[in-house]
Lab assay of single mutants.
Amino acid sequence: QKEELKEKAKEAVKRGNKDKARELLKRAGISEEEAKKIIKKIE
């Protein structure tokens, strides 16, 4: 489940939808700070 949400978040970032990505990562139980780092890494 968590990995699936991370994959979806990756796709969202690639489409330029960072808010959606952050939302998905939060749903995966990832903190706001972690989510920001992950999104930065994907960009």
Rank of each mutant, 00 (worst) to 15 (best):
K20C: 13
L24W: 01
E3W: 04
A21G: 01
D19V: 08
E33S: 09
K41R: 12
L24H: 09
K10D: 04
L5P: 02
K8A: 13
K14D: 05
Q1M: 13
K20H: 11
S31Y: 03
K20D: 11
K14N: 07
K18P: 12
E23L: 02
A35I: 15
G29E: 04
I42T: 06
K10M: 11
K20S: 08
R27D: 15
E34P: 00
K8I: 07
G29L: 01
L5V: 05
G29K: 00
K8T: 05
E23M: 03
A35K: 01
L25P: 15
K26V: 14
E11A: 09
A21L: 07
K20G: 08
A35Y: 04
E34Q: 07
K10Y: 10
E34S: 03
I42H: 04
E33V: 08
I42K: 03
K8R: 13
A28M: 07
K14F: 05
G16Q: 04
K10A: 11
E4I: 12
A21F: 06
N17H: 11
R22K: 15
K14C: 11
S31Q: 05
L24E: 09
Q1K: 12
K8E: 11
E32D: 13
D19M: 08
R15C: 14
K8Y: 05
E32C: 07
L25M: 02
E43P: 02
K20E: 15
E7F: 06
K37W: 04
E34M: 08
E34K: 06
E7I: 08
E23Q: 04
K40P: 01
K41E: 15
K20W: 14
E23N: 04
A12S: 05
E34H: 05
K6Q: 11
I39T: 01
K18Y: 15
R27C: 15
K36L: 14
K8D: 05
V13N: 02
V13W: 07
A28F: 03
E23H: 04
K18N: 11
K20Q: 12
R22C: 15
K2G: 09
K2V: 14
K36S: 14
E43L: 12
E4M: 11
A9C: 02
A21I: 05
K41Y: 10
I42Y: 12
I30H: 07
L25C: 13
K20Y: 14
K36I: 14
A9H: 01
L24D: 15
V13R: 01
A12K: 01
K2L: 14
K2E: 12
R27Y: 04
A9G: 02
S31V: 04
N17A: 08
K26T: 13
E33P: 05
K37Q: 13
G16I: 03
E23T: 00
N17P: 01
N17G: 03
E3V: 06
K2W: 14
R27V: 11
L25W: 00
E43D: 05
A28D: 02
A35N: 01
E43N: 05
E4C: 14
K40Y: 10
K14Y: 06
A21Q: 01
L24G: 04
R15V: 09
E7G: 06
L25Q: 06
K40W: 10
A21K: 01
E11W: 00
E23W: 00
R22L: 15
R22A: 12
K40R: 13
E33T: 07
I30M: 11
V13P: 01
L25Y: 02
L24T: 02
R27H: 11
K41A: 14
I42S: 04
R27F: 06
I30P: 00
L24F: 06
L24V: 02
K36N: 15
A21R: 00
A12T: 03
K8F: 05
Q1Y: 13
K26P: 15
